[in-house]
Simulated scan of single mutants.
Amino acid sequence: MKQNILSCLGLLLLPLAAQAIEPGPSSPQQQETEAWLLLQSRGQAASPIRQTAAASERDLSLQRWLESYKHPIPPFYKEYSGGQRK
Rank of each mutant, 00 (worst) to 15 (best):
Q3F: 04
L66W: 07
D59C: 06
Q3H: 12
A45G: 06
Q31S: 10
K78T: 05
R42Q: 14
W65T: 10
S26L: 12
S61H: 05
R64S: 07
R42Y: 06
S47N: 14
S81F: 04
M1D: 09
S68A: 13
Y77M: 08
L37G: 01
L38K: 14
K86Y: 14
L6S: 12
G24K: 10
Q31E: 13
P23Q: 13
A45N: 14
E57P: 00
S7W: 08
S26M: 14
R85E: 04
A45C: 08
E34R: 13
L60C: 13
G43D: 03
W65S: 13
L6I: 15
Q63K: 15
K86T: 11
L12A: 14
L60V: 11
L12Q: 07
P28T: 02
G10N: 06
M1R: 04
L38D: 11
T52C: 02
W65I: 10
Q30C: 06
Q3R: 13
A20N: 10
K86F: 12
A18H: 07
P72T: 02
Q31Y: 01
S47F: 01
I73W: 07
S61K: 05
A17Y: 00
M1P: 00
D59I: 06
L12P: 01
A54F: 00
Q51G: 04
A46P: 03
R58F: 02
H71R: 13
Y69K: 08
A17Q: 08
L14G: 01
E67A: 13
P28I: 01
A20L: 11
C8L: 15
C8P: 00
L37R: 03
